[in-house]
Design a protein around this nucleic acid. Structure first.
Lengths: 144, 144
DNA sequence: CCCTTATGGATATTGATTGTCCACAACTAT
DNA sequence: ATAGTTGTGGACAATCAATATCCATAAGGG
């Protein structure tokens, strides 16, 4: 946990990216949260400590970390995105009503990937598996 | 094939949706194409027969058919969408370079869906499984 | 064939995300 | 430490696919 944080900071330094308080704040949230926060959500959290924080800075930092391969981005159907401190592909369960996103234990798709590569000729680099439905809370609430 | 087309037209009539040449043209393309066309692509095709065709009409028709459960929409990371005449969830293989999308034989995720529903408490209604990589053609072309 | 009403088409709008710009802060080397 | 360089934060404008809006008109029932 703390080691992962320190490891990423070191990589940033190695790449001659500047270690700024804003970036550290965004990084810490991404590594801590299990809620797959939106840029807006991260923005709100960081703003409490840095009132001048800009939404653009959140996006820039998140994209930087994504480019470094340290986080992943989950683009939703509506065009918005959620960020995930875990950069490795793994299944998600998405509530169609409240947009809550839960992780699920990694499911090995390696053999399936090989099969698809063989049958299609594609060079497969990654995948994405999402399940959609209603979370327990939204199943109880009155429909929409 | 022809029966599916006729079946959908009948359903439209039953629902008191009007059967217009524009809608039929969009529907025919969606049922015929295996290329998972974009709205823009459908627009270009229909425009050859109906020069006054509007992109908005393509979207309206596609959304209508999606609402009827007769087609599906594949939202891509960049915010654009592709449409699929097959409304049932099935894996896709997406080329990260040329954006070509190929179908793959249906892969049963039923037992996995059940397991996820049991462990998360979600009521799972659908899923999406995409593989990303490079198609055979783009593997040969010079990088970017 | 007429009447009612949904639809097509042109256009404006949306909303998440990104680009632009410059003052300023973060690293470097002395 | 300190000054010099250069990448970065923040405000704002711009982007782009997709959707909403509007009204004349065409589709289908009577």
């Amino acid at each position: 946990m703390e080691s992962r944080y320190q490891n990423i900071v070191d990589k940033m330094r190695d790449r001659h990216f500047r270690i700024t308080p804003q970036r550290l704040a965004v990084l810490k949230i991404l590594l801590t949260s299990k809620a797959h926060p939106s840029a807006e959500h991260i923005y709100d959290e960081v703003k409490e400590h840095f009132p001048t924080m800009s939404l653009a800075t959140v996006y820039k930092t998140a994209n930087l970390l994504k480019e470094m391969g340290e986080i992943s981005e989950l683009a939703l159907k509506d065009g918005s995105s959620r960020f995930d401190g875990n950069p490795h592909p793994h299944p998600h369960v998405v509530c169609a009503r409240c947009k809550a996103i839960s992780d699920f234990d990694d499911i090995p798709l390696g053999s399936l990937t090989d099969e698809i590569a063989r049958k299609t000729g594609f060079m497969i680099t990654t995948h994405r598996l999402d399940f959609f439905g209603l979370c327990p809370r939204c199943q109880q609430d009155q429909p929409s």
